[in-house]
């Protein structure tokens, strides 16, 4: 599907073969980010901070300078990079375990400082890399390898809505939640990513795009079923849309 939209490989991808499972959305989002970097002409001054999670090799997949942070700490590492070299475009790419569990302090404070970085946040409702354990974003009742009887609010709390939570912070310039299940919403997702990077280029502060994503492997579903499950369940609990947009005020 995505191949119909963009035929040739963006310059900002390294060409290294992705390590993702069939039907996983990580790969689609990588492509979109790379296209945006190409279109904005910022490849040579972009730095990526990869997380610990299935996308741990993201720093290899992008044709830009980069590193990988300790689990959850990417926003702090990115902060260090940006403060040291403010002329660079710095982005983190993080899963929901990384960003919404172990790394909550770092993301909240980076956003609150209005740190002029961009975060692409992959919400797939599980820990992919370690074998499908509960994430803070796991839906109520959802079975994972650490919620074998289904997620129970009493024991595990409620699925966390990061975009909404972060949008209460004054340092934030742009937040949008998207998904990439159809060609139409892939186009929307790309626009959102572009806006987030543009906010950084303009120096407006912290920007984040949350992408609702599939993990067919750990959901135990086929890619098609997984896409459907995402639309019918995740997108209901995690409404799509723009949560903060200060790019217009700035103009």
């Amino acid at each position: 599907m995505i191949d119909k939209i963009v035929a040739k490989m963006p310059e900002s991808l390294s060409g290294k073969e992705f390590t993702y499972c069939p039907g996983c959305h990580h790969g689609i989002v990588h492509r979109l980010i790379a296209e945006v970097i190409d279109e904005l002409g910022i490849r040579e001054k972009t730095l990526i901070v990869a997380p610990v999670g299935c996308s741990v090799f993201a720093y290899e997949f992008f044709n830009v300078d980069g590193t990988v942070a300790p689990h959850g700490r990417a926003p702090a590492v990115a902060t260090g990079m940006k403060r040291a070299t403010p002329d660079k475009i710095v982005f983190t790419y993080q899963g929901d375990g990384d960003l919404a569990s172990i790394g909550t302090a770092e993301i909240v404070h980076a956003a609150n400082r209005g740190e002029n970085i961009t975060t692409i946040f992959i919400n797939n409702a599980v820990y992919g890399m370690t074998g499908g354990q509960m994430a803070p974003t796991t839906l109520l009742g959802q079975k994972t390898t650490t919620t074998p009887y289904g997620r129970d609010a009493k024991a595990n709390g409620y699925p966390i809505r990061m975009s909404e939570m972060l949008s209460t912070l004054s340092g934030v310039a742009y937040i949008e939640r998207v998904m990439v299940t159809t060609p139409q919403n892939v186009i929307k997702a790309k626009k959102a990513i572009k806006k987030a990077f543009e906010a950084q280029i303009k120096g407006l502060g912290f920007s984040l795009v949350e992408v609702l994503s599939t993990c067919p492997t750990n959901w135990g579903k086929s890619p098609v079923e997984a896409g459907k499950w995402l639309e019918e369940n995740m997108a209901k609990y995690y409404p799509l849309g723009v949560y903060v947009d200060r790019t217009k005020e700035a103009e």
């Binding site: 890399m129 074998g131 354990q133 390898t145």
Partner: peptide
């Protein structure tokens, strides 16, 4: 606990068995 390879099976076992 918090999942991490190569011992997540221990965490997972506890999630099934302790209840």
């Amino acid at each position: 606990g918090y999942p991490i390879t190569p011992q997540s099976e221990l965490t997972e076992y506890m999630s099934r068995r302790l209840p």
